[in-house]
Write a protein that binds this DNA or RNA. Structure first.
Ligand SMILES: NC(=O)c1ccc[n+]([C@@H]2O[C@H](COP(=O)([O-])OP(=O)(O)OC[C@H]3O[C@@H](n4cnc5c(N)ncnc54)[C@H](O)[C@@H]3O)[C@@H](O)[C@H]2O)c1
Ligand SMILES: NC(=O)c1ccc[n+]([C@@H]2O[C@H](COP(=O)([O-])OP(=O)(O)OC[C@H]3O[C@@H](n4cnc5c(N)ncnc54)[C@H](O)[C@@H]3O)[C@@H](O)[C@H]2O)c1
Lengths: 231, 231
DNA sequence: TCTTAATCGTGAAATTAAGCACGTTAAAAA
DNA sequence: TTTTTAACGTGCTTAATTTCACGATTAAGA
């Protein structure tokens, strides 16, 4: 009934279709956040005009982004808030919880372990690993810290698919190798270093310095401009 | 002698030239990381071929990115490692230390306060702010935690330009407003919410869920593909 | 000195992403 | 019931980004 010759990208759709572009995926959490806010405000339907407006995006962009989802809007009305939330969650795989291992129980690792927001993103950290004997055996936010040597074995036994690296950069490659050996399928790397990983394992680098680079360069550029203009 | 009619983007250059594109800026920290590694390996010169190779990028892209810098390479030899490091740092403003305020001394805030890597990025967190009476007055990694009410005044007095938000999303807008009131020029926002900020203040959102969205959707898509193929 | 080979800088081509415009549709108003 | 209006879906246009290609340059080796 809806979108007849429209190519589906959802898991249900056959033949891989087309990969959803990275920029589209990166906007999805923003939509989700705004939609949840609208929902708490009691809104049941929302237009792309309003949704995109809140996020400072072009309405047409939102509409285009949503063609990657299994949902269509209604003219004059827009999209059902709850339905759109569900569609985005389903697209991202956030409707099912997936277990993850975290390596590096330092200050960043502890923050990640204690972060409750990951539940809403389908991520459940089930164990932490470290090499520091002082940390092994302790429990952080209810999660056990285990010796790194147990990682590969446990990963296979527990069929864990996601690994999070929060060790110093110098240790990251070694940890990544263990993760690959343990059969993990995806690595979320917080260490500021580029990893060598076989192509069958997905890697995403969360490098804070990338954002900082944009911020500080722009700030510096503005300063230079002001100095030039005013004096 | 070098690059005669080449338009400069450095602060020294007149008339604003052209803004360096965001994708270029976001690659800079990666180059920097690889270059530092090369330097510790004793390398004095490096070609774009080798540098980009380590990062999985196209050599031509690196060359083009470096046109934003105040440096030129030599045929057959490449770029001087140290010179290129300095040129990138100067471009990003990482050669000067800038003071910053952090708001929200929770688990993420504490991790950021303790992170020594920011020194290399020209960022020096000089004070933390919170509303929790239990945290105010304490000291984290040598940084005082002050009441939020002091932020605006202190920011003006100390001429701090950068603010970091590490509070819950619900408090982020309020904190951002105080930062604007205090005359901060740039905000680095770790709360997963979009802020309303006047255009003269720069904002960069560090939303971890964006990276996670890419990772988990790709993982899910692979799973679906495998299920289809194998059984 | 002359040749070879690696790399640079850059314009042109290709690819990808974003924005626009318009015909269509459904709700609400006349 | 008819008209008006807001918003959808989508093909087309424009802009941004990346890749390709090649002449120019310089170091090293014959
Ligand atoms: N803390 C931050 O705010 C922050 C910000 C940006 C990036 N990072 C990056 O995140 C990573 C962790 O930072 P951190 O501040 O938590 O550091 P940290 O020193 O507090 O923690 C690192 C942890 O890793 C453990 N470790 C070291 N080698 C290991 C190994 N081979 N296997 C397993 N565990 C090992 C250490 O025992 C320690 O517990 C670093 O790469 C850092 O650059 C941190
Ligand atoms: N912890 C993580 O790993 C993580 C990961 C991703 C995103 N984040 C985001 O970072 C932010 C902080 O996360 P967290 O885990 O540190 O939370 P947290 O609850 O540990 O810390 C929040 C801190 O902010 C303070 N605070 C609350 N309201 C305030 C206000 N109005 N003004 C000043 N301070 C205020 C609290 O007292 C507390 O100290 C959140 O927005 C969270 O969504 C955290």
């Amino acid at each position: 009934m809806t979108s007849p010759r429209h190519v589906r990208r959802t898991p249900a759709g056959a033949a891989a279709a087309q990969a959803i572009p990275v920029p589209v995926l990166r906007r999805m959490p923003g939509y989700l956040q705004a939609l949840r806010q609208f929902r708490t405000e009691g809104l049941e339907w929302v237009s792309c005009t309003r949704l995109a407006g809140r996020l400072g995006l072009d309405p047409a962009l939102a509409r285009k982004d949503f063609t990657a989802l299994d949902i269509t809007g209604k003219p004059k009305t827009g999209f059902p808030v709850t339905g759109l939330i569900r569609a985005i969650e389903s697209c991202l795989g956030w409707d099912n919880v997936r277990d993850a291992f975290l390596v590096g129980a330092g200050s960043l690792g502890r923050a990640l372990l204690g972060y409750r927001g990951f539940r809403e993103h389908g991520l459940n950290i089930v164990a932490a690993f470290d090499t520091d004997p002082g940390k092994i055996g302790s429990s952080l936010h209810g999660t056990q810290v285990l010796p790194l040597s147990k990682l590969a074995g446990l990963a296979r036994r527990m069929r864990v698919a996601i690994g999070i690296i929060a060790t110093p950069a110098a240790a990251a490659q070694e940890v990544a190798d263990l993760m690959v050996a343990g059969g993990l399928r995806a690595i979320w790397n917080f260490a500021p270093t580029s990893l060598s990983i076989p192509p069958e394992v997905l890697v995403e680098n969360e490098d804070l310095s990338r954002t900082l680079a944009v911020l500080s360069q722009r700030l510096q550029a503005r300063r230079a401009l002001e100095l030039e203009e005013n004096g």
